[in-house]
Amino acid sequence: MMRKREFYSLVGPSMLVMVGLLLVPLYLTVKWSFQDVDYGSPGQFVGLDNYARAFTDPRFGHALLFTAGLTLVVTAVLLVGGYVLAAMINRLGRMRPVVLGILLISYVIPQVVGATMFSWLFDQNFGGVVNLAVSWVTGEDVLWFVEAWPNRIMVALNVIWSMLPFATLIMLAGLQGVSQDVLEAAQLDGAGPVRTHWSIIIPSIRGVIGFVGLISIMDILRVFDNLVPLSPQAVQLGNESLMLYIFNIAFQDGGQDLGLGSALSVLTIVVIVIMLYPFLRDVVKEARQQ
């Protein structure tokens, strides 16, 4: 039995860090969202003005729509793609660590660096291999950076490229935990590969898939640095993510609309909670069952 003093000495530091790095910034963000804030000066209470400005700014609506759409599409691709890749890697023998190492390159490269290199694939100025290939096949030049949908596709491909290794790695860990006995029993009962995956493996790693979905949604909702090189015209194309929008409003070019920026941050937290609700509900349910 752990003594009280021991318990507090172990839990205390992490509680302090959480209060300092999570609760204090959260409190300040909520407080500033009701204020007109200038750097270094006490804010002035403005009631719901910042929220009213946020809701009447069409850019907020565009950013919300773009971010939500990107999150849904990319999460779906990550879940399916991550599972398929993990299943394929799981069948590999000696080559597995090599393939895993290569796969993780895009995951360990800093996002903005990866996105910049990714943008060069589509940029004629820097070679533009994909651009050339598409032109060669279709006979048309796609304007990846100034047309809304090609740009959205490019951004989505980049986010998938950078996050797929994580999804694959976690799914692989899940697959390795599936009981061999159950799989052999399914085989003896005559279940084919598709049926085995659908009826045996996927239900048994449901928790892992849910975890990947949860993390993916949180990460994609916070997409920011990828857009700097990939969508330099994001505002005009309606391809501004919520985080980029908040940055542009609160900080860009030395701007200092921290009040509106904070209100937008609070609204973003609400959106994140709404989008995570199904996954959080499952996690709570699972915890209760245990």
Partner: peptide, 15 residues
């Protein structure tokens, strides 16, 4: 796992 970890560490160091 060892070579995989080594590869990742090498990549992180390079990046």
């Amino acid at each position: 796992l060892l070579p995989a970890m080594v590869s990742i560490l090498a990549l992180v160091a390079l990046s």
